[in-house]
Design a protein around this nucleic acid. Structure first.
Lengths: 207, 207
DNA sequence: CTGTGTGAACCCATTCACAGCC
DNA sequence: GGCTGTGAATGGGTTCACACAG
């Protein structure tokens, strides 16, 4: 296929497809059609085929997609075929939940360092990782860590982000309810639980 | 303005604008221009004006928007002008974080009931709310609860969702990494941390 | 005959540009 | 003069329909 601009929306959906595929893989399903995948997510089959087509032709006409092969392809597209190391800043309640969250593994993520500024926490261990002083963030330079997870109070978020960027982090998952400014080369995704919840009542007929 | 279909995207952005406005309000700022708001979020001013225009005309030409008035208007649009009660199902680590999360208050949310299926947890209190047996979910019928938050393992998510729908819940914030099926009248927003993280590496030049 | 891949058509959100009001 | 509000133009994502491969 000749080059065409790939919609961000398509990229956005790939991890969703991937999760479905990995689930099918667990069930030892060998092939899957765009129709099956679509039913699974509640989208249209042509959307899925089109999304894939931006990146190449992965299926077999008349048959469908090889689950194993397709999931490998998508991982490669998303840069998930190599495992990624992440650093977590903020070892509070939220931080502990993130550390314990099993879901990262299936995409090949590993949190290999944890920092906090609370002297009481520094030195302690959670999930077998010892918490280090955030002022020593430069320690991560020795490791190949390219992702940062911010789980600190809002006021500290920007400062932490700045430090992470200094250390060469390329992507940030931000749990603080605020926008953080970073150089364009760094990708930030912010998760704001309260804001997501705030989107629900609009769709609810006022009682 | 005469009727026109309102893009979902515009609705999606309103809570973001609202957060910025509430922040300005804290700083006792009286008026704000679309330009200022736009700079704050890193979007374009005409985007903001257009978004508002779908719902009415809230500003004053040559001046801008009254922060207080505009935030009230947006709250009304989003159905946030009345406070909402939510029920939390799943009192594990994640559940505890959600309960302790201060961010819900600014949008007028209150978690008034918590359920779990773990006998060890039932009867205990977190954040002054006692955990009840999930089999007694029907207790919430007496209260006016219209939102549900699901923080249980994936396998249990669909069942919990079904129960919540039975109880008349109108919107669900789902933290389980899976799609859940509900009647069309019920709005579901799923937050899948791992999936969000999985979206980052695509934008990172492979090292 | 089944299911993929894709140019073309369509639709809708974004962007523009400017009229209108303070 | 400054800033909003909005039709019109643009641009791009989605949907369609069908050629083609198995």
């Amino acid at each position: 296929m000749r080059y065409r601009k790939i919609p961000d929306e398509a990229v956005w959906r790939l991890p969703m497809y991937l999760r479905g595929l990995l689930l099918s893989l667990e069930k030892s399903q060998e092939t899957i059609s765009s129709q099956e995948l679509a039913d699974f997510f509640g989208v249209h089959p042509w959307q899925i085929r089109k999304d894939f087509s931006y990146f190449g032709a992965f299926g077999t006409p008349g048959v469908g997609y090889k689950v194993k092969k397709l999931s490998t392809q998508i991982k490669k597209i998303l840069n998930l075929h190599v495992s990624h190391k992440a650093v977590l800043v903020g070892a509070g309640n939220l931080g502990a939940v993130i550390l314990a969250y099993p879901g990262f593994k299936i995409y090949g993520f590993e949190i290999t360092a944890v920092f906090d500024n609370n002297p009481q926490k520094i030195g302690q261990k959670i999930e077998n990782i010892s918490i280090k002083d955030v002022s020593k963030l430069s320690l991560i330079k020795r490791q190949k860590i390219d992702l940062g997870i911010i789980a600190v109070p809002r006021k500290a978020a920007q400062e932490v982000a700045d430090r992470l960027v200094e250390m060469g982090i390329k992507g940030i998952l931000n749990f603080s309810p605020c926008r953080i400014n970073v150089p364009k080369k760094v990708k930030v995704i912010t998760i704001d639980i309260a804001m997501d919840l705030a989107r629900l009542p609009y769709y609810i007929p006022s009682s």
